[in-house]
Computed example of a mutant assay.
Amino acid sequence: MDITGQTALVTGANRGIGRQFVLELLDRGVSTVYATARRIEALEVDDPRVVPLHLDLTDHASVIAAAAAARDVTLLVNNAGISTGASLVTGDLAEIHREMDTHFWGTLDVVRAFAPVLAANGGGAIVNVLSALSWFAFGPASGAYGAAKAAEWNMTNGIRLELADQGTLVQGVHLGAADTDIMSGYDGPMIDPRDVPRASLDALAAGSIEVVVDDWSAMVKASLAGDPAAFYAQLASMAG
């Protein structure tokens, strides 16, 4: 996909990686970016090509209204997400549901609403921002988030197959920690959040269906071919 002249929609565009996607898309010459958020007054990008649009992934009516308002979209970036810190065994079950409702059901709802829009506009592309935690677990505080991201990862694989006939490229983007609000309090190494849209859009131009943004994600992915006991022993050693 040549980004120049495309019409994009980015979920969770008011901060973090979503905001960086909006900025990078503008730099690469899109004609329009629908910048969506639950609170559009929080959007800070001042550019005539940016169209603020209300979208709440957990509100089906909101998703349908956004798809009706943005009928010219050719690139859908599913970035919106949350991190509740809920553990799977003892955490608040409502918070675990909220993780899944956002990352899996909410993202799938957006895909289902915009798939006909993309088909009508020639196929286009979908980018799902995932995580290295799609592939492993790291402590109780990431239990619900990791499970939801794992579900979103295989959902990404599934919709890729289902949307191939309409010419829609579906890309999954994996990263470890980026220096954003959602990672506040994390004291490990973090990448520049703008590295994520740069890597994603470069790969989109090459037709790549998966992007592994950082060394941490690459290490985790490589471990999947081996004995998980060895990987988790290495992880425990790294954590001290």
Results as ranks from 00 to 15, higher is better:
106 G>H: 02
135 W>H: 10
125 A>K: 05
128 N>Y: 02
145 Y>H: 14
110 V>F: 09
84 T>F: 13
143 G>T: 07
87 S>K: 06
152 E>W: 00
124 G>C: 11
136 F>H: 14
155 M>D: 04
103 H>I: 00
103 H>L: 10
136 F>L: 01
106 G>C: 03
87 S>D: 15
93 L>R: 10
108 L>I: 00
135 W>T: 00
130 L>R: 01
104 F>S: 04
153 W>P: 01
99 E>G: 04
99 E>F: 09
149 K>L: 13
128 N>M: 06
84 T>I: 12
136 F>M: 07
87 S>I: 05
129 V>T: 10
95 E>R: 11
109 D>E: 05
88 L>M: 12
122 G>S: 07
141 A>F: 06
130 L>N: 06
132 A>V: 00
93 L>F: 12
126 I>E: 05
127 V>R: 01
133 L>F: 14
134 S>F: 03
152 E>V: 08
140 P>T: 08
117 V>S: 11
119 A>H: 03
88 L>Y: 07
123 G>H: 10
95 E>M: 10
131 S>M: 04
124 G>L: 12
100 M>H: 07
143 G>R: 02
135 W>G: 00
135 W>I: 00
128 N>G: 02
128 N>F: 02
123 G>V: 04
83 S>C: 14
132 A>S: 09
96 I>A: 07
131 S>H: 02
96 I>D: 03
152 E>D: 15
126 I>Y: 07
126 I>K: 08
123 G>D: 08
126 I>H: 06
97 H>V: 03
130 L>Q: 00
100 M>Q: 03
113 A>M: 02
147 A>P: 07
144 A>F: 12
99 E>Q: 15
113 A>P: 02
142 S>Y: 15
156 T>V: 03
146 G>H: 08
148 A>H: 13
140 P>S: 14
100 M>A: 08
155 M>T: 09
124 G>W: 06
144 A>K: 06
116 P>Q: 04
148 A>G: 13
92 D>Q: 08
154 N>W: 14
84 T>K: 10
114 F>T: 10
112 R>A: 05
132 A>Q: 06
150 A>S: 15
151 A>Y: 14
155 M>R: 04
108 L>Q: 13
